[in-house]
Amino acid sequence: MPQGKPPGVRCAQLDDNNLCRLFGDPRRPDVCKRFNYDPELCGTSRNQALVNLAAWEAAT
């Protein structure tokens, strides 16, 4: 996404299993490389992670 990813928009690089197509690829954006799994943010489900991410995006 050359212009950046707007909040709430699914990343174009996610596959049908919500896995990054660019994982391990040098073209993967730096912001994604720095984003590590965090149980507090990700929770125990995809839905919980999306709720938490939406709250972070709204706060910034």
Rank of each mutant, 00 (worst) to 15 (best):
N36A: 06
F23S: 15
N52T: 09
K5Y: 05
A49D: 01
S45T: 13
T60K: 15
G24Y: 05
N17A: 13
L19F: 13
P6I: 00
Q48K: 15
P26C: 04
G8A: 14
M1A: 04
V9W: 10
Q3W: 00
L19E: 12
R28G: 01
N17D: 11
L22Y: 09
N47T: 12
L22I: 01
R28S: 06
P26A: 07
F35I: 09
P7R: 12
G43A: 13
K5V: 04
R27E: 06
P6M: 02
K33S: 04
W56C: 00
L50A: 05
N47D: 12
W56H: 08
N17F: 05
E40C: 01
Q13R: 14
G4N: 14
P39E: 11
Y37C: 04
Q48G: 05
R28P: 01
M1S: 06
D25N: 09
N17S: 12
D25F: 01
D38W: 07
A12T: 08
V31K: 01
D30E: 02
D30A: 02
Y37Q: 05
L14P: 02
L19H: 13
T44R: 04
L22G: 01
A12L: 09
V51S: 14
P39A: 12
P7K: 09
Y37V: 07
T60D: 13
W56N: 02
A58G: 03
R34E: 07
C32R: 05
F35P: 01
V51W: 15
D15Y: 01
R21N: 02
R28Y: 12
D38T: 03
N17L: 11
R34V: 04
R28N: 07
F35R: 09
L50S: 08
F23R: 11
A54Y: 03
V9S: 12
P6T: 00
L41E: 07
R28K: 15
N52Y: 02
L41M: 11
L41V: 13
D38Y: 05
N36Y: 14
F23A: 15
Q3G: 10
P2N: 10
C42L: 03
N36W: 12
A59M: 11
P29K: 09
V31C: 00
A59R: 12
A55C: 06
S45N: 11
A59Q: 14
A55M: 08
R28Q: 13
L22T: 01
R34C: 05
C20W: 00
P6N: 02
N52H: 09
P26E: 04
G4M: 10
P2I: 12
R27Y: 04
D16C: 13
R21L: 14
K5F: 04
D38C: 08
D25E: 03
C42F: 02
E57S: 00
M1C: 03
E40S: 02
L19W: 14
A58T: 00
N52V: 06
A59G: 13
Q48F: 13
L19Q: 13
T44S: 05
P29G: 03
Q13D: 03
G4Y: 14
R34G: 05
L50N: 11
A59Y: 10
R21K: 15
F23N: 14
P2D: 09
L14M: 07
F23I: 11
